[in-house]
Simulated scan of single mutants.
Amino acid sequence: MTSTASWAGLWFLTRNTTVSTKTSITSLEFSVLKPNIGTFRLFSPYSMCHNGSTSLTQRSCKCSYTAPVSTRTYEFSDTSSEVELRLNLKGLDIQSSREILVDTSDSSLAIRALRPGLPVTLIETNRLFDRIKPSETIWYIDDDELVVNFKKQDPDLKWPDIMESWESLAAGSAQLLKGASIYLVGNSTEINYKVAQEIATGLGYTPLSTKELLETYSNQTVDSWLLAEGSDSVAEAESAILESISSHVRAAVATLGGQHGASGRTDKWRHLYAGFTVWLSQTEATDEDSAKEETRKNVKDGRLAYTNADVVVKLQGWDSAYAKNVAQACLSALKQLVLSDKKLPGKKSLYIRLGCRGDWPNIKPPGWDPSGEGDRSLDTQ
């Protein structure tokens, strides 16, 4: 049997935790509030193999989520291979670039004015929109502005802003996803629905709820349907709904949670593969390592259909007020996923055009019979 693989970016959300935010901007005219909100922690993206292997292949950098910041204190532009940041220095009495410290890594940035006593932090983030080449960073003073030029590692990626935030992710996802739909799966129908609504609003996608579609079709609630005909009937009906919308583009689809939903059953994923799937996984884990180990065990066990998802977002607790934060985590994980393989959106489109035959991710040639034994895959590299 040909092994299959799924790519996953793993996020972890804790609630009721005071943020010690690592993104800040300081100027004479503006300051950033640090509200008492939950904090996301991003686990390094990894590949999950569904062939019995439990190895997690690390990719790229490891960094934590940082709160979005206002762009009122700086100007930003993208010139293909480079991005430029202009910071207003009025009132800081900066005479030369030697009084400025610019500290960068491939994914982080800190700019400080070297003042007598403690340095003044002008901007700091550990989550740039994408990676840069730190050694090629240059900066200079232009009148009352500090100008910093960064060389991008990926010149083809258009940066909406210097930092990753809800606004920049929403603006940047269009070029990455290329209209591919997003399916939210997991045990909670409510969480799937709330997060899908936020994603649809941010991306300008059509929000769809299989629960609402089922209830409109049957003229009864899903709970009544379950009592009358059982979970198998509901899962079969939702599977038919997923088939009917699988060719839709630019949709954020909230699926039913639990085993009565199609996404909770391994034999009902044929049409879910038409889009990017995000598993919203509630967990009791309290730290990154234990959350990752929990996911590793899920993959090894192989009984949870949700491990077929493209990305995983771990949540500790739930409050609908955090739906937008979770949606941001989803978009960030999907961004990393697509940047790791930019052909994925096109591959999703090909999968749809060939009829959603269940041969994801090893797409077979046209005319392939799902009931046959052939395992030759269509070359999509």
Rank of each mutant, 00 (worst) to 15 (best):
G186Y: 06
G179W: 05
A174M: 07
E198N: 04
G202D: 00
T201F: 12
A196P: 01
L214Q: 02
A196S: 05
G172H: 05
Y217D: 15
T201P: 07
L214A: 06
L203T: 05
T210Y: 03
I191G: 01
S181D: 02
T201Y: 10
G202N: 08
Y205E: 10
T221I: 13
Y193S: 13
L203P: 00
E236P: 09
E212P: 09
S231Y: 11
V234S: 00
A171I: 03
T201W: 13
A228C: 11
E215D: 09
A170F: 03
Y205P: 01
A174Y: 09
Q220G: 10
Y217E: 15
D223F: 12
L169R: 00
K194R: 15
P207W: 11
T210W: 08
S231G: 08
T189G: 05
G202H: 05
K178Q: 06
S181Y: 01
V234K: 07
N219G: 12
D232I: 01
T206V: 07
A200R: 11
K194A: 09
L213I: 14
Q175P: 00
L203H: 02
T201N: 10
Y193G: 13
A237Q: 10
S233E: 13
Y217N: 14
A200Q: 11
T216Y: 13
Q220M: 07
S181N: 11
L226H: 03
K178E: 06
N187S: 10
S231D: 11
A170Y: 01
W225D: 11
E198R: 01
L214N: 04
L208M: 10
K211L: 07
N192P: 01
G204M: 06
G186M: 00
Y217F: 14
V195C: 09
D232A: 11
G179E: 09
N219V: 09
I199Y: 02
L213Q: 14
L213G: 10
Q197L: 13
A171M: 07
L176R: 07
S173W: 03
S173V: 03
V234P: 04
L169T: 00
T210H: 02
I191S: 02
I191L: 07
A171Q: 12
Y217W: 14
Q220E: 03
P207R: 12
S233V: 10
T210S: 05
L213Y: 15
L203F: 06
L184R: 04
T210P: 00
A171G: 02
P207D: 09
T201R: 11
L213S: 12
E215T: 10
I191Y: 02
L176M: 04
L169W: 08
T201S: 15
E212Q: 15
A200L: 13
D223R: 10
L227I: 14
S224A: 15
G204A: 02
I182F: 04
A171W: 00
L226N: 03
S233M: 13
I191W: 04
I182K: 07
L176G: 09
A180C: 14
A200G: 13
E198V: 03
A196M: 02
A237M: 11
V185I: 08
S168R: 03
E238I: 05
T216K: 14
T221E: 12
E215K: 12
L226D: 05
Y205A: 08
